[in-house]
Amino acid sequence: MAMEWLQPVDLYCERFGPGLLAEPLNALSNLAFVLAGVWVAARMPLAFAPRPVPLSFNLLAGCIALIGICSGAFHTFATRWAGWLDVLSIALFIYGFAICFARYVLDIRWSLAWIAAPALWALGVFVTAPFESGDLNGSVDYLPALAALSLMTLGLAFRRRPGAAVFALAAALFAVSIALRSVDQAWCSRWVWGTHWAWHLLNAGVLSLAMTGLVLAGRGPIPDIR
């Protein structure tokens, strides 16, 4: 069993052999997530002032940085255990974001807001049903998140809530990043570095925009403290 967790994984165009530095661009580009998490955490106190930033929002900012750390581990060690860290860190942010959207934007109390997580999972089953798990170079796994982000955008626009335009930009950028991830192997013969590193850079922007939109839509009216 231990050997299975240590089994090497080779999924991306850039990996040209074993070793910690076999995916330099894929590994280094994860610094963008760490910087994005720090940037979001630094900006939120300004957006929420004079109120404190909700703990859940700070945790989401931390999750963005965690994605960078776990993905960086995956693209250096390239083992099954590192791959699971990558997957779990992304899932933690996505489901946490959905729950916070339900709580702060839809105004659903915490005792029920958690239902957003299984609802997102059910949406994923529906969206991915026409595909095989390996389709689009594995990017089919991210289509549910794109669908959810698009639905959130439409909901905000329909209700004329702040942040709708930022959500729309995040969804558009996410669609581009998924497209780039999908062609990583297909373009390998023409571009030895692949495109996965661009997926990292664009997604750092996607998560920053999504958090900005969530803050705008979910902070509510600033109270009059005069």
Rank of each mutant, 00 (worst) to 15 (best):
Ala129Gly: 06
Ser71Cys: 03
Phe48Cys: 03
Ala98Asn: 09
Pro45Asn: 00
Ala204Gln: 03
Gly68Gln: 07
Ala210Arg: 06
Cys100Ala: 12
Pro45Gln: 00
Trp84Ile: 13
Pro118Ala: 00
Gly72Trp: 04
Leu20Cys: 09
Ile222Val: 15
Leu143Lys: 08
Ala49His: 15
Ser139Val: 07
Phe101His: 05
Ser29Glu: 01
Pro50Ile: 01
Leu46Val: 11
Ala170Asn: 02
Leu156Ile: 09
Gln7Tyr: 11
Arg161Thr: 10
Ala98Leu: 04
Arg181Lys: 07
Leu6Lys: 15
Leu169His: 08
Ala175Met: 11
Ala47Ile: 11
Asp141Gly: 15
Trp191Leu: 15
Ala22Arg: 07
Cys100Thr: 06
Pro18Val: 07
Arg181Gly: 05
Met211Ile: 00
Leu202Pro: 04
Val215Pro: 07
Ile94Cys: 07
Ser139Trp: 07
Gly124Ile: 04
Gly124Asn: 07
Gly17Lys: 08
Ser139Cys: 11
Leu20Gly: 11
Arg109Thr: 10
Arg80Met: 10
Cys100His: 06
Arg15Leu: 02
Ala78Lys: 13
Pro50Thr: 06
Cys100Leu: 07
Arg43Leu: 11
Ala47Arg: 15
Leu6Asp: 15
Asn203Ile: 00
Leu216Glu: 15
Leu151His: 04
Ala22Cys: 06
Phe48Arg: 01
Ser182Arg: 08
